[in-house]
């Protein structure tokens, strides 16, 4: 190789090694390999080379150009790698630091249970029917087969308003009459009636003066107590998980006859007895029964032609059982430390 080419090569390679960033590298490229760069000039100046040396010169210049091009590519690659490594090094982080969580509120546990109940009964064709909180004595008691003075009224401690005959509903059952009058007569009915109820009862861990209830009502031409059992079994399996054991006890409500209470085997101990079920093994989940003929008649249905069942349950109680809540007063205390536990 000619000495000048040799010098050029050494100078170029040394310069490439000192080009530490993309700008210096580009400057180097322009200096050597650019259109007016020194290596490009070598080819352009081939005419000034004596003729006999031209082939060797040409080969050497070409080889130099190729060598420097490759060296450039390698250097460029190395620089990219270097800067990426530097970038990565700067990104090091403790992944166990807490994430930035979006602020999303939660649905009240009672409302969650109400949604669940509503959804389950929707699968069986029950639709939601709303009714009022402030009721007349007539709807809350009389039309439900409890005339004034009836001893069964003692089952419900009642808040009276200062308007005679107007009370706070003690149960969602007056909704049965409202639903029958709104949807009947002579048509089948399948509704649930969620709502707030009120009892004149000292507030304690187990009793509230205000609580939700969900009443259910089915009326048809062939509705039987076996159907009522079927609906309760279906509901319990969907709410508490499949395969639950159920027990039906004779009970009494003035607006159903026969009347039952439904118990599910304790979800905590499975029936062997624990503090939650008070060592009984069973948890009461709802009251139910066949709609009393008088109530059917009061709703405009002929009890000889139609029959029906009704049931009622307490979403707070269900939530307490499912989430192990020992004190009902948490529900309406509006303490975020309680509410935020339920998602």
């Amino acid at each position: 190789m000619r000495e000048d080419l040799q010098l050029l090569r050494e100078g170029a390679l040394a310069g490439l090694q000192t080009a530490g960033d993309a700008d210096a590298l580009e400057a180097w490229r322009i200096q050597y390999l650019g259109r007016k760069g020194t290596v490009t000039d070598l080819m352009r100046n081939i005419g000034q080379v004596p003729a006999e040396e031209r082939p060797a010169y040409g080969q050497a210049a070409n080889a130099l150009k190729n060598e420097l091009s490759e060296a450039f590519d390698a250097r460029q690659q190395a620089l990219v790698q270097e800067s990426l490594a530097a970038e990565m090094a700067a990104e090091g982080v403790d992944v166990t630091l807490p994430g930035r969580r979006p602020q999303i509120g939660g649905v009240h546990p009672s409302n969650q249970t109400l949604r669940e109940i509503t959804d389950i009964f929707a699968t069986m064709g029950f639709q939601v029917f709303a009714s009022r909180d402030v009721e007349t004595d007539e709807y809350n008691f009389e039309l439900l087969n409890m005339p004034p003075g009836h001893p069964a009224r003692d089952l419900w401690d009642t808040f009276y308003t200062t308007t005679p005959g107007v009370i706070m509903r003690t149960h969602t059952s007056p909704g049965q009459i409202h639903a029958m009058k709104a949807l009947g007569p002579d048509k089948p009915i399948r509704v649930i009636l969620p709502g707030m109820c009120y009892r004149y009862e000292q507030v304690s861990a187990r009793a509230e003066m205000m609580f939700h209830q969900v009443e259910g009502l089915a009326i048809g031409r062939h509705i039987t107590m076996a159907d009522l059992k079927g609906v309760i079994v279906e509901f319990a399996n969907q709410l508490y998980g499949a395969g639950r054991k159920l027990r039906f006890r004779c009970s009494h409500f003035p607006f159903t006859e026969p009347s039952v209470e439904a118990d599910v085997d304790c979800i905590l101990c499975g029936g062997s007895g624990c503090a939650v079920c008070k060592y009984v093994g069973w948890l009461e989940i709802m009251g139910a029964g066949m709609v009393h003929p008088t109530v059917l008649r009061n709703g405009g249905y002929d009890p000889a032609e139609w029959s029906g069942f009704a049931f009622g349950m307490g979403p707070e109680r269900i939530t307490m059982l499912k989430s192990g809540i020992s004190d009902i007063r948490y529900f309406f205390g509006n303490d975020l430390r309680f509410l935020e536990q339920f998602g």
């Binding site: 048809g220 159907d227 027990r247």
Partner: peptide, 30 residues
Amino acid sequence: IPADLIEEVVRIIGYDQIPTTLMDDALPPQ
């Protein structure tokens, strides 16, 4: 009334003796 007697009958037989069925009555308008 007859319903009172029906309750007497079923509570002595036992509610566990009642079969469990799914309503086959007409589905009301949804």
